[in-house]
């Protein structure tokens, strides 16, 4: 059996996450879902080593504590939920920050700008962009890292429909290249694009499996308190 790309054993974050154990294989596109305050961002930050957490976390079989911070920057790309910029760095320089742990070699920066349609904005100060554009900058930075573990916290929420679908396409491409892509999301209509779904409620893992197995009527009722009804509706695809 393949070594999991990300492995969590009884991981807890005081008051926010309780005893989560999880194995995520390489080349998987994984969605983390749950109601507001269920611990999605906490889980993502903990598995990235960005929050102090109890329990065991390993990347590719190696305990996170044994991986120097600089090396982590080569293995992980994290897109935060909020895109706050106090200083007016240019779009290009923010995307180029993704190469910090590669010795600032600048590789893949132009390609990442193109992938997120940012080339025309490359020299614009990032603090003068709209919320959606800022998120595209952060996603481009994540793509520029070429990291095998990609963690995008509600990255799609601020994007328009075309860029959201485009981003999912990039996530799929990364997955096919062997990366593990984790994204937290609220729009469950996008769940059909995912290989696996991790469901959290009140800081606890309540389900983990394929979307078809996990996203049942009873789960929607128990976790989200809503009634799910499968019906043909609006379907959007990239033209």
């Amino acid at each position: 059996m393949n070594t999991p790309a990300v492995s969590l054993r009884t991981v807890s974050v005081s008051g926010r996450l309780h005893d989560v154990s999880l194995d995520l294989g390489p080349g998987r596109l994984v969605g983390v879902i749950g109601p507001n305050g269920s611990g999605k961002s906490t889980l993502l930050q903990a598995l990235c080593g960005l929050l102090p957490a109890a329990g065991e976390i390993a990347w590719n079989g190696r305990p996170l504590a044994d991986i120097p911070v600089y090396d982590r920057g080569r293995q992980l790309a994290w897109v935060p939920q909020e895109a706050r910029f106090e200083f007016g760095f240019t779009v290009r320089s923010v995307v180029a920050q993704g190469r910090y742990a590669h010795g600032d070699d600048g590789a893949g920066v132009d390609a990442a700008l193109d992938l997120m349609d940012l080339r025309p904005l490359a020299h614009r100060p990032v603090n003068r962009l709209s919320g959606g554009e800022r998120h595209r900058v952060l996603l481009a930075r994540a793509l520029a890292t070429a990291a095998p573990i990609q963690v995008w916290d509600e990255a799609l929420a601020a994007l328009d429909v075309r860029h959201a679908l485009q981003t999912l396409k990039h996530a799929d491409r990364l997955k096919r290249a062997g990366s593990t892509v984790l994204l937290s999301l609220h729009d469950l209509r996008l769940a059909h694009c995912l290989d696996e779904v991790v469901v959290l409620s009140d800081g606890r893992l309540v389900a983990h499996g394929t979307p078809d197995d996990v996203l049942t009527e009873s789960l929607f009722r128990d976790v989200f308190g809503v009634t799910a009804r499968m019906a043909p509706g609006l379907t959007l695809e990239l033209s």
Binding site: C48, G49, V69, Y70, R72, W78, R84, Q97, A101
Partner: peptide, 21 residues
């Protein structure tokens, strides 16, 4: 200079990029 660029975006982001914050 360079780590300060990354830190001025936030400690968590800087750490995710490989800065020993």
């Amino acid at each position: 200079g360079r780590p300060m660029d990354l830190l001025s975006l936030g400690a968590t982001e800087a750490q995710s990029l490989g800065v020993n914050v």
